[in-house]
């Protein structure tokens, strides 16, 4: 028996909206500790990893680990039927479920929707992601980072991110010209302005902006985003989800010649 009830169902809707352009089908692994999901994009350039802890759910029960193979497109269609204020419950009684039940309830419990989504059997391609001690970590407004990526992607497809003790520089070079945006440490009390740099080792890495713009669809999940980098390592972009878990994106760097 597996049942997970999320008080703020809108969070689940936002997560699916944030990843639906990147991955087509995913395995959600349910265990006693919560839900986890990991999937690569079709080009194997990026990886998304979701972890939702059981104690972030209103109700959570998972008698034994199960894997739920879902088409993101079909999941999206079902979630469109959930209101932003609804609670969302996922449920199945079977050990090898062929479908997953969804219940959407409005606040007054006066409207209850029930859907059953057919499951897919997907071979698990899960990669081992070592816990990395990143040498450059940037915490900043997710809206600001999303804006920087959007603006720079009109000049070039790739952005070079260079960190130093007191600032991070986003540089682009394209046919029309070049540009850079430098953001300094800023302990402002205004969320949108605050920038927190922890630079043990400066890095200079180049990434495809198309992927960063896709990752930034998660901006509605958290007002802050963290960029985690080490030389010769994929960038890890993390959106923490209050009291529930985190949505992480990994992006392989461009190999600068």
């Amino acid at each position: 028996m597996f049942e997970a009830k999320l008080q703020q169902g809108v969070i689940f809707k936002k997560i699916v909206d944030a990843i639906k352009d990147l991955v087509k089908s995913v395995n959600i692994d349910a265990s006693t500790s919560g839900l986890s999901m990991q999937a690569m994009d079709s080009a194997h350039v990026a990886l998304v990893s979701l972890k939702l802890n059981e104690n972030g759910f209103k109700d959570y029960r998972c008698d034994r680990p199960i894997t739920l193979g879902l088409s993101i497109e079909n999941l999206s269609k079902i979630l469109k039927c959930a209101g932003n204020d609804d609670t969302i419950t996922l449920q199945t009684d079977e050990e090898e479920p062929s479908s997953l039940k969804f219940f959407f309830e409005n606040q007054q419990a006066s409207k209850i929707s029930e859907f059953s989504l057919n499951l897919m059997s997907l071979d698990s391609e899960s990669l081992g992601i070592p816990d990395t001690d990143y040498s450059s970590v940037i915490q900043m407004s997710s809206a600001e980072f999303s804006r920087i990526c959007k603006e720079l992607s009109s000049i070039s497809e790739t952005v070079e991110i260079e960190t130093s003790k007191e600032s991070v520089k986003f540089s682009v070079q394209g046919d029309i010209g070049a540009g850079s945006i430098t953001v300094k440490n800023n302990q402002s009390d205004k969320d949108v302005d605050r920038v927190d740099l922890q630079i043990d080792q400066p890095v200079k890495l180049t990434f495809a902006l198309r992927y960063l713009n896709m990752f930034n669809k998660a901006v509605s999940l958290s007002s802050t985003v963290s960029l985690n980098m080490s030389e010769e390592n994929p960038l890890m972009v993390e959106y923490k989800i209050d009291d529930l878990g985190s949505l992480r994106f990994y992006l392989a760097p461009k190999i600068s010649d």
Binding site: M40, S126, G128, A208, N233, P234, D257
Partner: peptide, 14 residues
């Protein structure tokens, strides 16, 4: 031109 690297170069199959 910069070549795009692949994520499964960095992280191995479990």
């Amino acid at each position: 031109l910069t070549e795009q690297d692949y994520i499964n170069i960095f992280y191995k199959q479990d």
